[in-house]
């Protein structure tokens, strides 16, 4: 009897996850229905106007979608030359050594620093440098936000990549060495191709992180409503516009912001599912 109740409780808890997810999607859809009704799904997505003034009120998500994709992909690009060496350092060259556990703990701590502290660092330390570099007058913008995002996602990209690299059996690598290959050639022709899908999955997950990152970006991107066309531009991401404007929003504007939240949720969900799918396939093999 007691066991039956307990098993029932376990099942109920699992069911709660199902209901929670269903509830998340339901409220996001329901609360944003207004704006999709008003402009149509594509009319909302592809419209770059965002004008909350009552007389000319108009809402479109396009400039924020572009801002999000722009910063996230540029951050991903910036993080590769750092996260890949870290992955090779920990998963290949110094696999199993003390120095590798030191490096990986230090890099993992980067993931523990709160987004808002990254924002402060970007504002007080990096922004003056960006101004000095002459990127733009205020320092704020896509460039600054992407640099900080890149640092933030290094641990996500590197630790998972290192894990996949370290799983490559020594026997296969020895096969390459026994043919006269150097370590670098073995990495280039054997290790990286073998770990490639896992590494791709790691970077997709890191991209998902970058897409949804809020505070640091909000503090650094400049918060302007425009479609950014270059790294010097300021802009807004989907997450930063919600963080900035949610507080005073109501009516159609609130619905539009929730609509942006729904789109952001869908984009990150798809990105994460792709990464998880790749990894599931790997673990089966």
């Amino acid at each position: 009897m007691k066991d039956k109740i307990f098993k029932g409780l376990l099942f109920a808890a699992a069911l709660a996850i199902l209901l929670l997810t269903a509830g998340v999607i339901y409220v996001l859809v329901k609360q944003s229905l207004n704006v999709f009704h008003e402009y149509g799904v594509f009319g909302f997505i592809f419209n770059a106007e965002w004008d909350p003034r009552p007389e000319t009120e108009e809402y479109g998500a396009w400039s924020f979608i572009i801002g999000t994709l722009f910063t996230a992909f540029f951050a991903l690009l910036l993080c590769i030359p750092f996260s890949l060496p870290v992955a090779l350092f920990n998963g290949e060259y110094f696999k199993g050594y003390k120095i590798s556990s030191f490096v990986s703990s230090v890099v993992d701590l980067l993931a523990g620093i709160p987004s808002i502290v990254y924002g402060l660092w970007g504002f007080y330390t990096l922004r003056p440098i960006v101004i000095q570099l002459g990127v733009n007058a205020q320092g704020f913008g896509i460039f600054l936000a992407s640099i900080v995002l890149a640092v933030m996602i290094i641990p996500y990209a590197s630790s998972l990549s290192a894990e996949f690299l370290s799983m490559i059996p020594d026997t296969v690598k020895e096969g390459a060495y026994s043919l006269g290959a150097t370590r670098a050639e073995t990495i280039r022709h054997v290790s990286l191709p073998m770990a490639s899908s896992g590494i791709v999955a790691a970077y997709i997950l890191a991209l998902g992180r970058a897409l949804g990152e809020t505070m640091a970006v909000t503090m650094l991107i400049g918060n302007t409503t425009n479609v950014p066309t270059s790294l010097r531009d300021t802009g807004n991401t989907m997450a930063s516009v919600i963080a900035n404007q949610f507080g005073e929003a109501d009516g159609l504007k609130l619905s539009a912001l929730i609509g942006i939240g729904l789109l952001l949720f869908l984009i990150t969900a798809v990105i994460n599912l792709i990464a998880k799918f790749i990894m599931k396939k790997l673990s089966v093999r």
């Binding site: 998340v24 949804g212 809020t214 997450a239 963080a243 939240g261 949720f265």
Partner: peptide, 8 residues
């Protein structure tokens, strides 16, 4: 849920 952005 794990991948859901905190702002959402």
């Amino acid at each position: 849920l794990q991948g859901m952005p905190s702002i959402v």
